[in-house]
Design a protein around this nucleic acid. Structure first.
Length: 297
DNA sequence: AATCCATTCAACCGCCTGGGT
DNA sequence: GACCCAGGCGGTTGAATGGAT
């Protein structure tokens, strides 16, 4: 069978669409619906390639497209989503109603990317451009050693809690979490391992350098207590959406995780644990909820 | 006013994937 | 399993635009 060429080389128009062409395309789609793009140009009387028609409709003519500048909220979401999905523009677009992948891609490349670089943040990894990997590794090792000593007595419970932690995030109430966040206080060094990082890319340092989440939250973060393991390093998007469901939006989630809940990554017998701020354990409401979950399990 | 340069963004291109045969 | 097709995707291009000189 001979493959039908996508675009016939001759007689097809390229470049900017005219109003007349737009009207023809809109009228045809309204009458026959989307699809059948390859044969659409002939039927609609357009001297355009089918792909070009689809693109024009999807990126410009579709009635549900939101035009105009991106809001601060949209940009924040975009940064968070990019941290999770990378350059998967269509995946990002699905989470930003009314925005097209092309529009998002352009906006990222022309605005956000530059802004991140200006702030010293790598727009690809969402980590600081100044990070020295070797230094990072050394510092992390030293801290790990210290943490490891501090936590020798709690290894068995750590592993158990680590498993529980994967589930508690789905159920613990927002009011309790808000309470913890509001509890403030310096983050302690006797943090107990509680949240598994097994499904995320491994963090390798307790870097004090900025991340994209720092930028979008516009607030300073306690560097001693901050791990770069925010949503930006999670490779599995389901994790992010899990927390997203709890807190309403990704910005809050990122801010919470990066600034309060986690203070480091500690290895136990080849298994890695994220460190939870010790103040959480002093919060009775939080511990009560955790206990209830344990009983249910 | 004219020219140059940088930026923006609509559109194109080539590749990939999933579904149908 | 092999092949084809339609649609989708991400990277790139280039015309349009605006600001600087």
């Amino acid at each position: 069978m001979v493959r039908t060429p996508c675009c016939r080389a001759e007689g097809l128009k390229k470049g900017v669409w005219t109003q007349e062409e737009d009207q023809k395309l809109i009228a045809h789609v309204q009458r026959h619906g989307e699809g059948g793009w390859r044969t659409l140009p002939d039927k609609a009387g357009l001297k355009r390639c089918g792909k070009s028609c689809r693109l024009r409709w999807a990126n410009y003519l579709r009635p549900d497209i939101k035009r105009g500048d991106f809001s601060q909220e949209e940009e924040d979401s975009m940064i968070n989503l990019h941290a999770v999905h990378g350059n998967k523009w269509s995946a990002i677009a699905r989470r930003l109603p009314g925005r097209t992948d092309n529009e998002i891609k352009n906006h990222w490349n022309t605005h956000i990317k530059k802004r991140l670089i200006k702030k010293g943040i790598d727009p690809v990894t969402h980590k600081s451009l100044l990070d020295n990997l070797e230094e990072k590794s050394t510092v992390h090792q030293e801290k790990d050693d210290q943490k490891s000593k501090d936590n020798k007595s709690s290894r068995s419970s750590a592993r158990f809690l680590n498993k529980v932690a994967n589930r508690f995030g789905q159920r613990v109430s927002q009011s309790v979490l808000s309470d913890i966040i509001g509890s403030g206080g310096s983050l302690t060094s006797h943090a107990t391992p509680i949240i598994s990082s097994s499904e995320c890319e491994r963090s390798t340092s307790s870097s004090s350098t900025p991340t994209s989440s720092d930028l979008l939250t516009n607030q300073s973060i306690n560097v001693d207590a901050t791990t770069p393991l925010s949503s930006s390093t999670c490779s599995d998007s389901s994790d992010l959406f899990l927390y997203d469901d709890i807190f309403g939006d990704i910005e809050d989630t990122t801010r919470l995780i990066s600034s309060r809940f986690l203070s480091n990554v500690v290895s136990h017998d080849g298994e890695e644990f994220l460190m939870l701020d010790g103040s959480c354990l002093e919060n009775t409401s939080f511990m009560r909820e955790l206990t209830m979950i344990l009983q249910e399990d």
